[in-house]
Write a protein that binds this DNA or RNA. Structure first.
Lengths: 344, 344
DNA sequence: AGTGCAGTCCAAAACGTTTTGGGCCTCTGC
DNA sequence: GCAGAGGCCCAAAACGTTTTGGACTGCACT
């Protein structure tokens, strides 16, 4: 049962392939009766245009690409992208892509081995555009794509002024708010567990943290800053160390929720009751945070809708349509839960 | 900077496109000197064969498809695939796909709206093959793909004898083991929170549960069986109800880890200490389970390596190569953690 | 001098569409 | 009776490869 082509439909109906094509595409210069004949025949024969051929002719891949970032390899050579933030993000990309009849190509890569993937997709014109995530302070991907003039939408952005379109969550102001929240609760020794140093958002969040401290009249103490790697394990290790220092910090802010969840675990293991003995907060608003025990105070960034909006912008770029807002900055929403508010 | 084609390279070198093509593909009937000239020219000009054209000619999509299953829509129209099992699974698919120079097309869909996606990809020959997951007891996808003779590898299988290749985890024996584990610890009232009734694995796991009860000499009580939906929320609601019945079950087995994690939360909210007042166990071995409080007893199924193996089988199918084992059954590994072993 | 044979190269076909640029009717209005 | 205008349809080109089936050299061997 080899695939049925447009030619098969045409010869069966004694029509030209042109007419069949145009009938199915809804052009006005085909008689209503003919169109009906074509449509039923196509349905009966199970005809659907070959995507490859269509792409070839229209020079469109009808696909967008997304490389899922993963920070570290797990033992045994396996790599998981354990951060549920990206699950939600991908769900958004997928939904919006299908809405536009685009396909979504994904790949999973660490920062070291991502380059071949971008090159393969770009050079071979495998995709019409990219969605970029976890932007670094200096990011070769932006330059590479600009040079090959392939459209893309960044989630976050590099340092300095950039001209490309992006959607960003104002994590600086978010972290400042979070520090204010903790300071209002009486905390003075507020620690911060950061992430990979080359990430743009790492700089933003740290600076938001410092701004928040300043506003609250708390001196910055670099011994209260530890490095994680955006994973639960990284947060766990960093928190384990921070919580065993004297004097012990009374509050911990993780750069993202995974880090904070790791910190909660560390606190539990040390016999501290989170919310009462130590306050812990994160950033992202993943589902697991809401269901953790205790539920995690966090700054929600709407991954799903950011993803959808990114695809919308990307589609406009691809089609050369004007975009209302090329550079969007969203405010995260602080949700205070039991992990900072003490026992319920 | 429009993309450079093979013709550009050919005219620059005064060669035919045939020779350029064959030179780059490593055919033996091209002089070493010529090949060198072609290679440097191609590199200089930044030539890479157009994937679309190559696909067109070879009638290969060089891509495989995977539809991420999602059970329910979240409020606000958003759908997340919250189950980290699939994150790991996708990581495996992606890694193995790139190893074979294949692209991975993904989409996110509930059971109701998955059909158009399969049809689009199959009819338009958008992919060379599929990986299927969460097989239903009767699954139209298998029949659809067989009919359109598109290769696929199933993760799990339908009821009855099937001829297609699959990789399955023996969840029946797994659940039987799990009941034995709990019975050994002295539990007699062991409840089960199931999943969607049309899933093959639902039947398997329930039957494993019953087999385990029988072996332990415990009578099956259908009031101890509740229905979830494979999500944390589903597990939460089901557990909430089960744990408020009298007499209260002393142990809860969730059909998957997400269900069990929801159950843990329910127990916590009811003031029960998991591990001491009630034992809770799951199935999957996701990372979140290991990091939950208390850490979750579970049956580990190696999502990452199952995914990789699935792709390997699929590649063999696509290329018409023989496969050593077409139908693989793996044994899950029981890991007992604090959620059933009581306080550490 | 003819035959055979590697060693190189190439023209043309094919893959299945969409799009361009008409062509042929029939009907209308003079 | 004829120009003009729609209405409907189509042939052919193009998209950028890979593959098929030679073609053209020299060179060695009869």
């Amino acid at each position: 049962m080899s695939p049925v082509t447009i030619r098969d439909v045409a010869t069966r109906l004694n029509l030209s392939i042109t007419t069949v094509s145009r009938a199915l595409d809804g052009y006005p210069d085909v008689a209503a009766a003919t169109r009906a004949r074509v449509e039923t025949a196509a349905r009966e024969m199970g005809y659907a245009p070959s995507h490859m051929a269509r792409q070839m002719r229209r020079q469109r891949a009808d696909a967008i690409g997304f490389v899922i970032p993963v920070t570290r390899k797990l033992e045994g050579g396996s790599r998981a992208f354990a951060d549920p933030y990206f699950s939600e993000f991908i769900a958004g990309l997928g939904d919006e892509a299908t809405r536009h009849k685009l396909d979504l190509l994904v790949s999973v890569a660490t920062e070291e081995d991502e380059q071949p993937i971008y090159e393969r997709w770009a050079r071979g014109r495998r995709v019409d555009g990219f969605v970029l995530n976890r932007m670094r302070a200096h990011d070769w991907r932006a330059r590479f794509l600009l040079r090959n003039d392939l459209p893309f939408v960044a989630n976050g952005r590099e340092v300095g002024a950039v001209t490309y379109p992006f959607i960003e969550v104002d994590s600086r102001s978010g972290f400042s708010q979070m520090v204010a929240h903790l300071a209002d609760l009486g905390h003075r020794r507020i620690a911060y567990i950061g992430g990979l140093p080359n990430l743009r958002s790492q700089a933003d969040r740290l600076s938001g943290y410092r701004a928040g401290l300043k506003k609250a009249g708390i001196a910055f103490d670099k011994r209260l800053v530890a490095a994680g790697d955006l994973t639960r394990q990284g947060g766990y290790l960093a928190a384990l160390e921070l919580l065993q220092r004297a004097p012990r910090p009374t509050a911990l802010i993780g750069m993202n929720d995974m880090t904070a969840l790791g910190a909660i675990r560390a606190a539990n293991e040390l016999g501290l009751q989170v919310g009462r003995d130590v306050a812990i907060a994160g950033f992202d608003g993943i589902d697991d945070g809401a269901h953790a025990s205790p539920p995690l105070t966090t700054l929600i960034q709407p991954a799903y809708s950011i993803a959808r909006q990114s695809v919308q912008m990307l589609v406009a770029l691809i089609n050369g349509n004007p975009i209302a807002e090329r550079q969007i900055v969203l405010q995260p929403e602080l949700v205070a839960r039991a992990s900072t508010l003490g026992p319920a």
